[in-house]
Structures are given as structure tokens and as C-alpha cells.
Design a protein around this nucleic acid. Structure first.
Length: 152
DNA sequence: GCCAACGTTGGC
DNA sequence: GCCAACGTTGGC
């Protein structure tokens, strides 16, 4: 099992929204490095749900990858914000995954706390200037975070 | 609202 | 292939 971190702005799609929906297609990623991480995901992987552009930003939940290699339909929708006219339906450029709600953390771990407890080498999301919305989390670090989040 | 970081685009 | 211009992300 691999561990990941997925960023979302809560004003766009929050952990509360996912709790309500139970599952969602993680669409709208338009960065090749992030897409490559999405392609590397396998069913059963876990991902931390991170609220960006939030007050405060931080980890607020855990999700499971329940479907992989899903074509992102928004790339073919001209009315959509994430329409990509250069993507060929015979060879879609953007694939993604389906994620399912596992748990919400209250409290979670704020970015400030993450910076205090983890180095930029251990945890990419605390690295200055990192704008990738999909990131891998090394397993030992993921397990440490889960222990902290669950109050052990 | 500002701005640093950084990815993408396009002229050459 | 270089790189300036531009757009976006996201913390503050």
C-alpha cells in the first residue's frame, strides 16, 4: 500500500463534501507531474486529504483509492473550466482516480504543526514553493502522521 | 491583496 | 533548445 497526499481548496471541494458524497472522481488535475502520481496509484492506497487556501491549511482527513486509471471527463467538456482542446479522445491526456471517504480528523494537523514535526525531505508538502496538488508520502512518515492524528 | 515559486507557452 | 512572458498556486 502506498500513501499519498491530495490537496483541495475547501471552498471548491472539502472533506465535508467527500464525507457527504462518500466517493468522488478526483478530476481537474492539469499538471503532468501530479498526473504521473495519479497514474502510479493502486486500488487500496491511502491518501491524506489536505485543505489548501484554508484557515488554517492542513491535513483534515484520510481517503482510500477505490478506482484507478479513470479518464477525467472534464478534459472533453468545452464548457468546463478544465477543458483541454488538445486532448484526443482516442488518447486522453488526463487520467485520475476515484477516492472514497475513510475518516475525518478533528483536529487535523495544520501546516504549522507539520512544519514543526517533519522536515521538507520527509514531507514534500512542507517544502517552500511546492505547488503540486498530488504528492507521495513515504510510508514511515505516513504511519507517524496517522499515530499523531489518532491521538496515540 | 501581495508575491514567491514554478509550470507552460511561444517566438526566435 | 533557449528563455522571456505569462498564468497559476497557495501561504501569508
Amino acid at each position: 500500500m502506498n500513501y499519498w497526499l491530495l490537496k483541495s481548496e475547501p471552498s471548491v471541494y472539502s472533506i465535508e463534501d467527500l464525507k457527504r458524497d462518500r466517493k468522488t472522481l478526483w478530476d481537474g488535475v492539469r499538471n503532468y507531474q501530479a498526473r504521473n502520481f495519479l497514474q502510479a496509484m493502486t486500488i487500496g492506497d491511502r491518501a491524506f486529504f489536505y485543505h489548501s487556501n484554508a484557515k488554517p491549511p492542513g491535513i483534515v482527513g484520510l481517503v482510500e483509492i477505490t478506482q484507478t486509471n479513470q479518464i477525467d471527463p472534464t478534459q472533453f467538456d468545452p464548457s468546463h473550466k478544465y477543458y483541454d482542446p488538445q486532448s484526443n479522445p482516442q488518447k486522453p491526456r488526463w487520467q485520475t482516480v476515484e477516492v472514497s471517504f475513510l475518516e475525518q480528523f478533528t483536529p487535523g494537523l495544520t501546516l504549522d504543526q507539520l512544519k514543526d514535526r517533519y522536515s521538507p525531505e520527509e514531507l514534500l508538502v512542507v517544502r517552500k514553493g511546492n505547488r503540486l496538488s498530488v504528492l507521495p508520502v513515504p510510508e514511515p512518515i505516513a504511519l507517524r502522521m496517522l499515530r499523531e492524528l489518532r491521538g496515540a
